[in-house]
Design a protein around this nucleic acid. Structure first.
Lengths: 123, 123
DNA sequence: ACGAGACATTGACAACCATCGATGCGTTGC
DNA sequence: GCAACGCATCGATGGTTGTCAATGTCTCGT
């Protein structure tokens, strides 16, 4: 069986840890996926380039601005797309990428979500 | 030599991509490291637990609340510490972790940093 | 229809990483 | 001092991932 802490706990009147706000359902994994998508420096730069545009940017213009190959950029764009951070629209042979409003909103709330949110004390 | 796009570009009057706000120096890697620290679901949960406390939380209390082993929790706490998200203070045998205000501030700004920031057009 | 170009997909490979068991290092109580 | 405990570190391992070269698919101009 699991052992409990046997040593007398450090002095503190209310040493009972608080519970973080329980993230509804798969929200936790969703958030982690969002962060994972931005965890790579190259991909973060790609996203920043896409997010900086006033209108959708052509994939070829993204490829031109990075040292990695075209398949790699395509892969990064796909990861960003799966994470809900960018959206793609086709025009003929070209693929145009734009930031996804939902992803941006979630990203904006992420800071507040993680900053300070305690709910209830727990045994 | 590198080939240029030869096909006539899609119709757009101002099809010149904008540049994202150039992140000062190693800021880009710093941000990526921040996101990488939160990219793992378990570690994200650990951080949320620490961030939810009003006072520093004992490492043993963190270990108690997760299914992974104590070395793994210790590892996660170290990663969060290296990312500047939590701070540690010792009291005897115990280690108390608290959210790092700087990390929280950077995390809060991250959303705005990535949302919409264009600066100048570029050839 | 044919070829060329834009983009996605596949397979392979090296680097990274989350996790565990074992061990080490301080500290505390006896 | 000594044994027990809290926590960190080490070594190993299986899974994940960023990157590339090669190839596939679709579209457009001629």
């Amino acid at each position: 069986m699991p052992r409990m802490a046997t040593r007398t706990r450090p002095g503190s009147c209310c040493g009972i840890p608080l519970e973080p706000a329980p993230l509804p359902g798969p929200e936790q994994e969703r958030l982690a996926a969002l962060f994972r998508a931005l965890a790579d420096p190259t991909r973060l730069a790609v996203f920043r380039l896409v997010a900086a545009q006033r209108e959708p940017i052509c994939a070829c213009d993204v490829v031109d601005r990075f040292d990695v190959g075209q398949p790699t950029v395509s892969h990064h764009l796909r990861v960003l797309r799966d994470a809900g951070l960018v959206r793609v629209s086709r025009q003929g042979v070209w693929a145009f990428y734009a930031p996804d409003p939902d992803g941006l909103a979630l990203l904006g709330r992420a800071g507040a979500l993680l900053a300070g949110e305690e709910v209830s004390a727990v045994a």
